[in-house]
């Protein structure tokens, strides 16, 4: 019997987040899977039509409610549970949105959750990283019932957006939504740079940049390269870069074509965030830094000389 998979879409009310297209690819690795994407929104139409165009999506269901204007896990979870009844597997992306929401869904369902799915081997068998990626664990569902999962988006390519469109169905769920959790604000730095989680190229800085001002040479290089900018935990802790730039076990896990680590020593917790990068470049004044163990190209030297020089060379 083919598995029925429900994917909870991540979006900002207007645009579907690319993490959802990666969940679709993950779901599609299971032969014969029937893939439904759920769009919970205040107004679902724009996001639903983007989801319907993703290759590999069989059906889109929408739930419209003014309470869904902001993605609050406590508000969304009971609605996801109401939709989940006919499905075998309920997936969301392993982003802060999905991690926050899906475990609450799993709690309401009293179902097991597989976090950070990097491969689906069968309808009940999954592979996932543990210990900051220092071990890979295969788990298998022990009994009947649903499995909830979050998809490690760095492990999957985004499903293509095609011309054909899957049917979109409006759903109404009759559940009482809590009012105990209220959205106040979100402050995000406005940036014209590519999104860190989906960028093809990323330039990342560590504590060796010395200050928020020191990061300017990275922004300049990144803009020249069309790259996103990331940071190590040490750099974020020191206040050189905002939290949303953190790459690593507890920050963002990314898989760009090119990752340039500048002044980053390469703690295990950082390396876990960049393992899936196609090519890693390390620039560091300490030739013994662990980052060189994983780098495809290593350059030992003073980053304050090297970075402007690279920028000059590619101009």
């Amino acid at each position: 019997m083919s598995a029925k998979i429900l994917i909870v879409a991540e979006h900002d009310g207007k645009k579907l987040n690319p993490s959802t297209a990666k969940c679709v690819t993950c779901a599609r690795t299971l032969a014969g899977a029937q893939v439904t994407v759920a769009v919970l929104a205040a107004e679902a139409a724009p996001v639903a039509s983007q989801a319907a165009q993703l290759s590999g999506v069989d059906r889109v269901v929408t739930v419209e409610n003014p309470a869904n204007l902001h993605a609050l896990a406590a508000v969304l979870a009971p609605q996801v549970v109401a939709l989940a009844a006919p499905f075998d597997i309920v997936l969301g992306p392993s982003t802060t949105f999905g991690k926050d929401l899906m475990a609450r869904v799993a709690g309401l369902l009293e179902a097991p959750q597989v976090s950070d799915i990097m491969a689906i081997e069968s309808a009940g068998r999954f592979r996932r990283p543990i210990y900051a990626g220092n071990a890979i664990l295969t788990v298998e569902k022990a009994g009947e019932g649903k499995v909830v999962g979050t998809v490690r988006i760095a492990s999957f390519e985004a499903a293509a957006s095609g011309n054909s469109a899957a049917p979109i169905e409006k759903s109404t769920v009759s559940v009482t939504l809590p009012t105990h959790t209220r959205f106040i604000s979100v402050s995000a730095a406005k940036s014209d740079r590519p999104d860190l989680q989906t960028a093809a190229r990323v330039v990342s800085g560590g504590r060796a940049l010395g200050s928020a001002d020191g990061f300017k040479i990275l922004y300049s290089l990144a803009d020249r390269m069309g790259a996103a900018v990331g940071a190590s935990r040490a750099a974020v802790d020191a206040g050189y870069a905002p939290n949303e730039m953190q790459v690593g076990q507890t920050g963002k896990i990314i898989s760009p074509e090119l990752y340039v680590a500048v002044g980053i020593s390469g703690a295990i917790q950082h390396l876990t965030g960049i393992k899936d990068a196609r090519t890693i470049v390390a620039i560091n004044k300490d030739g013994e830094a662990p980052i060189f163990e994983v780098a495809d190209f290593g350059l030992v030297g003073d980053l304050f000389q090297i970075i402007p020089e690279i920028e000059r060379l590619i101009s």
Binding site: H180, I184, S185, V186, S187, A188, N243, E244, K252
Partner: peptide, 14 residues
């Protein structure tokens, strides 16, 4: 205040 992918989100909870 929560560290989310987009930046910092503030919630009020009972």
């Amino acid at each position: 205040t929560r560290e989310v992918d987009a930046g910092l989100e503030t919630l009020e909870i009972d």
